[in-house]
Simulated assay, not measured.
Amino acid sequence: MREVIFDTETTGLDPRNGDRMVEIGCIEMIDRVETGRTFHAYFNPERDMPAEAERVHGLSSAFLATKPRFAEVAEELLAFLGDAPLVAHNAGFDFGFLNAELERAGHAPIALERMVDTVALARRKHPGAKLSLDALCTRYGIDRSHRVKHGALLDAELLAQVYVELTGGRQIGLGLAETVVSASITALSPHSTSGNAPWHRPPGDRPVRPPRPHVASPEELERHAAFIAGIENALWTR
């Protein structure tokens, strides 16, 4: 199953108040294993960068002024996302900005049924615990020492590791776990209305193999009895 883990950086907290997305980082995973394919871009927000936001991610207005506008790379981003489910931490925030930018650029928004929120997964698995990305990295022993400031691609890379842990650990690639995890994601998605979307279905039809015999045949029993009879001074005959 293909999934895309992503994170965004923005000028603020609410796209409805004029805040814009200034960075996106995406990691491709297949069967919970990173493939090495990524998408990363900075965007010119066509507005100033508030000091509070710059303190979080370190992206200045001067740096972003030379970057492309979102509309210029929207097609490339959509091609990378494809029809995969999109995994983010506090996903409603990232989806809000991503869809606002897509609509501003004349593209259809991404369906919320594709949203997988790792905060919801973590809350179900660790009720009452801290749910920040930093806290989950600490819980699972994931090294974040290189995370001085927030960065979309770096945070997506950390989240990919957290997501694997939240959905069963590295043994997730052993096959049966995929069906279990897909079902749990469906149940946790606040926008999912059915389990019939392609990314929520169990693996495709597999060939049905006849059961292997586990009972000894009469010939095998006869050979075994002859072997036992030929043992001299057997303990069970004393």
Rank of each mutant, 00 (worst) to 15 (best):
A177N: 07
G195E: 02
L166K: 03
P198I: 09
Y163F: 11
R170L: 12
I172L: 05
G175W: 03
L174F: 10
T167P: 08
V164A: 04
H191I: 01
G169D: 07
H200K: 02
S189W: 01
G175V: 02
G173K: 12
E165G: 14
H191S: 04
R170K: 09
V164Y: 01
A197C: 14
V162I: 04
L174N: 13
V180L: 12
P198R: 13
W199H: 11
V164C: 05
S192M: 08
S182C: 14
E165K: 11
S182A: 13
T193S: 11
T186H: 13
G175E: 01
A187P: 04
E178A: 15
A197I: 00
A177D: 04
Q171G: 15
A187C: 11
Y163Q: 05
V181H: 14
V180C: 09
V180S: 14
L166Y: 01
V180H: 13
A187D: 07
L166W: 05
A183P: 03
T179H: 10
L166H: 01
T167Q: 09
N196D: 11
H191P: 04
V181E: 14
S189H: 03
G195F: 01
V162F: 00
P198K: 02
Q171K: 14
E165Y: 00
N196S: 11
H200C: 10
T193W: 14
V180D: 07
L188Q: 13
T193M: 06
W199K: 01
L188K: 02
A187F: 09
G173V: 15
P190C: 00
L188T: 08
P190W: 00
L174T: 11
H200L: 12
Q171H: 15
A197P: 01
T179Y: 13
E178Y: 11
L188R: 10
W199E: 03
Y163P: 07
A183K: 10
H191F: 09
A187H: 05
Q171I: 14
A197G: 04
H200S: 07
I172F: 12
T186R: 07
T167F: 08
S194V: 01
L176C: 06
T167G: 10
G169C: 04
S184F: 06
V164T: 08
P198Y: 08
P198H: 11
G173F: 11
T193L: 07
L174M: 13
W199N: 04
N196W: 06
S194C: 12
L174R: 12
T193F: 07
T186A: 14
V180M: 07
A187Q: 15
H200G: 03
H191K: 04
T179G: 14
G169A: 12
G168Q: 04
H191D: 03
P190L: 00
H191G: 02
I172W: 10
P190G: 01
P198L: 07
T179Q: 15
Y163K: 01
E178F: 15
H200I: 00
L166A: 05
T167S: 14
H191C: 00
S189I: 00
E178L: 15
G168C: 07
T179N: 06
A197L: 08
P198F: 05
H200E: 04
I185D: 03
S189M: 02
H191Y: 06
